[in-house]
Nucleic acid binder design. Structure first.
Lengths: 209, 209, 209, 209
DNA sequence: CCGTAACCGAGACGGTACGTCACGTCTTGAG
DNA sequence: CTCAAGACGTGACGTACCGTCTCGGTTACGG
């Protein structure tokens, strides 16, 4: 007996190896060519696959690159370094390291740019990248609360809003520093950033404003 | 007497009106088509200009769109609302309003994406957009210092680093909220953002973490 | 006892119904789409058959269409109308009627065109179509000789050459009129044609040259 | 002042050399590949021309091949050999020689096949090939009449119909012999054919039926 | 009456060519 | 020397069929 959702569809099944080969080829091509010079024909050739096979699985360049890039962010982990500030520093450094890789730099902003005119793509980015990494904020907050560094949540919905805010502040700052200002998010910068994030602009510190 | 760089070159002079028409047509086309569907042939047609005229002035789509988008951010002003937090809120709301316009959304991220592989483009973005708006951070800090909300700078180079950090944090958060998370940066969100920015995560507040 | 070439092969025998369905579907598709838009995938779908089934039986589009078209010409009969001229008129009108059907028009010239570069296909056309219809010339000549309208053959090989010549003249004229000049081979035309064929150009007649 | 029909159209004019190169490349490709394997991309490459240039001038393969093949038939001439039969023999041998060339064999039947479903193509064939060669029939008839071999025309419209008939009979027989029966239209065959055409089936002769 | 070999449908596969689009350059005639 | 117009070579697009293959499953002989 077969599952209702996959009732042993007739015909030759899709090659599982092809998917992996295509996504890997996409990342390699992003490194070598960047977004705008990347062509699906070239990706197919690199993956040893026909162009039609690629189009059977993805609607176009945008969708393919979202999937290829999303995998890069799944390796992010929240280390336990003993304090909220140190934990954030740890994860931000990992994030910065990923954004230093050319396949992420080229691909990420491009699909975000495309998503401004494509609701389905926006949703795909949200599902595959954004929402998936929000776990890091939730984890970090829970850990800080258990340490007594942060108060418990006043209300569930408020907690969600705040988590989203923190995510936008952390991810936004790193992305902007790395891709728009085009300066490295190195250890020194990360330390300064986390100090401001945790204690605020108005709090005097070693390098406070 | 003529400048050495433009010694009254012989032949018909370039039309001054053409430049303005082309940039305006570029923004209109960005609104209607977005970055990826915008073509230089179409821009030329909208501007009532030949393609050759356009290529005589800009090297390509990237450069043209940087110029067309950069003008949008020149209207940003830092209002004097009586406190650091209120001043930031004011300018962030203006920034969010610009990022809500389709010509900015489509164009900005796209040229940033392209700039990851093009040093000259990166420099052009920095010059035309990033550095030009950092004035807002410097202005706001000076005003807050004169009010006594912030301490004076310890050292000039440190001051520069901090200004850059604040710029990345503010611009990054708004851009990420607007374009990546794809949620509106409305008054409520801006208020929450500025509270965290000014007082820090760890400081309890009406909706602190 | 079984033939050596088909020794009751083991396994499931081929479906006899499939062949008929495929040939019928081919003719239907020729009517609707013409030669160049006809695809084997479409024929298979119309016949309710898998593409592999079709390829098991025919090497390709050319062979399939030759078989589908050849059947159309098997309905030709030589009527006995009392004179050589009248007999020819009768069979030519039948031939013209077949060439007026779209499945014949589209298919016949196309396979002839293909056959100019494919010896096997040329042979298949000769066997399935050309040689099979030459019987009409032989029958007509024999009947005319028995009536005394034509002299008996001087020599067998000469007789063959002449039969071939007549076949090319009759079939060629009707095909050219119908498909190249693209004018109907109606009764009036057929009457004029047969008069010239039987009596020659130089013989004066009601509408002689 | 410019002609009304070609008022010195603005912009770069079309290359006259390209047309000739494309038609020549088409014939070469027909010889090497035949109709079905001929691709417009290949023709463009052979002609040293971009595919788009080709599509700017012809709607597709059919139109291109009609033009390429039509030129082949323009070299036909009606020799004056002293009698109607000899004149016809002369021109038929030339026609047979052209149909022996692979570029004519492959191309001619294919476009006729396509024309069965395309009125515009049918018209193009008629204009470029059929009507253009009917001149040979008119010329031959006039010459035979001036020699007294044929009577003068009874009526103009009747004369047209007869000329069409003769054209279909001559061209049809040669085409059918050459391409369908796939036998050479050599001198012996041509002599037999012209005898039957001029004197008719029923007239006894050295190899009459 | 059971195994097995060839059949069947479905559909994914690597290819090839399609006809279109935009690119950035070049070639006109006019100003 | 610039301008509008538009043809040019180039290269990628996304689609359509090709003919092959791989599945799970069926059918009828022959042991």
């Amino acid at each position: 007996m077969q599952s209702r959702t996959r009732p042993t569809r007739a015909g030759r099944p899709r090659s599982a190896a092809a998917d992996a080969a295509i996504l890997a080829a996409t990342r390699t091509a992003l490194v070598e060519l960047g977004w705008s010079r990347l062509t699906l024909g070239d990706v197919a050739a690199r993956a040893g696959v026909a162009k039609t096979t690629l189009y059977r699985r993805w609607a176009g360049k945008n969708e393919l690159v979202v999937d290829a890039v999303a995998e890069l962010f799944d390796e992010l982990r929240l280390p336990d370094r003993g304090s909220l500030a140190a934990d954030i520093e740890g994860v931000v450094l990992q994030f910065a390291a990923i954004l230093a890789r050319p396949e992420a730099r080229s691909g990420l902003m491009a699909v975000v740019a495309e998503s401004t005119r494509d609701e389905a793509l926006r949703e795909r980015i949200r599902t595959s990248i954004v929402d998936r990494q929000k776990r890091l904020v939730l984890e970090g907050r829970a850990r800080a609360q258990s340490r007594g560094e942060l108060p418990p949540e006043p209300a569930p919905e408020e907690a969600d809003r705040t988590a989203d805010l923190i995510f936008d502040m952390v991810a936004g700052a790193v992305v902007h520093r790395t891709l728009v200002s085009a300066e490295p998010a190195d250890e020194e910068w990360v330390r300064s950033f986390v100090r401001v994030l945790v204690t605020g602009l108005a709090t005097p510190g070693p390098s406070g404003m």
